[in-house]
Design a protein around this nucleic acid. Structure first.
Lengths: 230, 230
DNA sequence: GTCTATAACGAGATAGAC
DNA sequence: GTCTATCTCGTTATAGAC
């Protein structure tokens, strides 16, 4: 794709990338709320109006950064996951979780952008959901493979949650038991609860060596969706 | 205490409260990053320098808002918890979790302030930790009571986590088994992972009725620290 | 002593004329 | 695309009212 580009298109992608790089730098320094097209332009030696040829608005630049962050996280998780043998379900799960944690620690400001407080006045468009789902889909795939093997019992759900569980299963993974889909959704949120607490400093002065702590918590999360022990 | 106040002191608390109220309003509208002393003063019909009689700096105002938020959350959780009979450990746990969720949904911007992305350039002082620990202490108390009863087995920890587990137990709850302390810390982070995903909209278009979903997840969290079933 | 108001600083954002 | 005049901000020094 990039080899087939003309010079004009190549220049355009280069400038687009430079804009996003500078925007990410500002994200780290000032936070998403203060991201300003003018400041990005100034730092790049451009005039602010020139930026509008690349991003029609500040919100569109934000959306691009969000999609990039989700994709970067998703790609990191997928790359780590691919190296594990298909049969080792538990290792596939924990490796994926650890890759998500490692990415978040390496990119705390982009992590804050996608899993932190919403940016005031900004509402993410539907265009972001595909990228946002990548880690979740990876985890679903692992649990799906576990259910292909010998009889793995579905997890139970209380009566009041039954309709929601069935609706969610139909939406997300019709081949999985509803109780498992519920447990996976919770595990997904809980995984990012653990990651967020570490990245945002909530564990400071409390957990001294977060890596083995996280490793253990991720393994227990796997059990909560029916993988491994329990 | 407040009845023994003179007129001077009463006026001072009233102005302090008005400043914080207005600051909270701006928090909701613009986010913590854009909290401005001048804007608060303007809205109150004061001059910005007058605010320095009440808060020595913008960061001190932020700190006060953070402590207030933690205390408000803690008080809500404690009030809900108090109504449950001591013997019903599972209900004490789930009620506390549900109170935290309800508070977060009712105060999303204050929730973002304490559990969302860090405010750029601001670092929370140690003064905040007492208020920040209230919910955690509540949960520890429940599990402690569970261990007072008949033989409740401690949870296992892998060898690599053993030293950390023992250090954390010594710090947080010397009377609880180290594995349980680890599990509780993870459950605490996971609880706010669930709450945060809902408050920040990550469950939009995914979980239609979050209340029974959360109720079930909180009950399963209780099991993960050794309460009830499992 | 306790407060509020005026004025100013240095730094940065912004809007509009050119 | 550039320049300038006018905003904002946090913060301080100072002077005066109660």
């Amino acid at each position: 794709m990039s080899t087939a580009q003309g010079a004009r298109a190549r220049a355009r992608t280069a400038v687009t990338a430079a804009i996003k790089d500078e925007a990410r730098r500002q994200l780290a320094a000032e936070g998403a709320a203060k991201l300003s097209l003018r400041a990005v332009a100034r730092e790049l030696g451009m005039v602010s109006s020139a930026l509008y040829r690349y991003f029609p608005s500040r919100d569109d630049l934000l959306t691009a950064l969000i999609i990039d962050a989700y994709d970067s996280l998703g790609a990191a998780a997928e790359a780590a996951h691919e190296k594990i043998p298909d049969a080792d379900l538990m290792a596939r799960w924990t490796t994926t979780c650890e890759a998500a944690r490692a990415w978040a620690l390496a990119h705390p400001h982009e992590y804050a952008l996608i899993y932190g407080s919403p940016v005031p006045g900004y509402s993410a468009p539907v265009t972001t959901v595909a990228a946002a789902s990548r880690v979740g889909l990876l985890l679903i795939g692992i649990v799906r493979d576990a259910h292909r093997g010998p009889g793995l019992a579905g997890l139970s759900v209380p009566a009041g949650l039954r309709p929601e569980a069935e609706r969610m299963a139909a939406d997300l993974a019709p081949d999985l038991p509803p109780g498992t889909v519920i447990a996976m959704t919770a595990a997904w949120a809980q995984l990012f609860g653990l990651v967020g607490f570490e990245v945002f400093g909530q564990f400071n002065r409390l957990v001294e060596d977060p890596e083995p702590f996280f490793r253990h918590a991720a393994a227990r999360l796997a059990e909560s969706v029916g993988l491994g022990g329990s």
